[in-house]
C-alpha cells in the first residue's frame, strides 16, 4: 500500500504572478494618498503567507476587471465609513488611541444587507474587519469594489 502523502507535501505555492502596481492602480479611487496606498498594497500582497498574497491578488484583480467593464469606480464610490482597525496590544492601544489603516470599509455596501445601526450591520463590520491585516484589508477592498460595481449597475438601471 503506497504511503500517504504527508499534509502540505506539495511544493509551496509561489506568487510570482502578483503585480502590486496593478492593485495599486485599482485602489487609487479608494486611497488617494500614494504612500498610504502603498502601505495598503504591501499589507495585501507583500506580507503574510504566500497563499494569502496570491489569493488577494487574484480576487482583487478579477473584481477590478468587473469594475472596469462597467465603467470604473464612479464618483461617490469612496465611502470609508468603517475604518479597518490597526490592532495593537491592549495596553498600547489604550496609550496610542484607536489606529486604523488608510483603507476603510464601505458602510453603504453593507446597508444593502442590513440597515445601518442594526446589530447585523455592526456584526458584518466586525466579521469583515477581524483577523490579520491581510484578511481585513482584502475584505474591505473587495466590499468597496463590489460597492462601486453595484453603483455603476444601478446607474444603468440594471
Amino acid at each position: 500500500m503506497p504511503p500517504h502523502a504527508p499534509p502540505h507535501a506539495r511544493p509551496a505555492a509561489n506568487a510570482t504572478f502578483v503585480d502590486p502596481a496593478r492593485v495599486d492602480l485599482l485602489l487609487a479611487p479608494f486611497v488617494k494618498d500614494p504612500a498610504s496606498r502603498a502601505f495598503v498594497v504591501r499589507c495585501l500582497l507583500g506580507e503574510g503567507p504566500t497563499h494569502h498574497r496570491g489569493s488577494n491578488f487574484v480576487l482583487l484583480s478579477l473584481l477590478g476587471q468587473v469594475l472596469e467593464k462597467v465603467g470604473g469606480a464612479p464618483e461617490g464610490a469612496l465611502d470609508a465609513e468603517h475604518p479597518v482597525p490597526l490592532r495593537l496590544p491592549p495596553h498600547l492601544a489604550r496609550e496610542a488611541g484607536p489606529q486604523s489603516y488608510p483603507l476603510g470599509l464601505s458602510g453603504a455596501a453593507l446597508e444593502r444587507l442590513a440597515p445601518k445601526g442594526s446589530r447585523d450591520h455592526e456584526s458584518m463590520v466586525d466579521c469583515l474587519c477581524d483577523g490579520p491585516p491581510q484578511h481585513a484589508l482584502a475584505n474591505a477592498a473587495m466590499v468597496d469594489l463590489l460597492h462601486a460595481v453595484l453603483l455603476r449597475l444601478e446607474a444603468r438601471g440594471s
Binding site: 498610504s36 502601505f39 490597526l86 495593537l88 496609550e95 496610542a96 486604523s100 489603516y101
Partner: peptide, 10 residues
Amino acid sequence: DTFQAWAGSR
C-alpha cells in the same frame, strides 16, 4: 514592550 504604541498608517 512599548514601541508599537507608535505604530500607525503614518
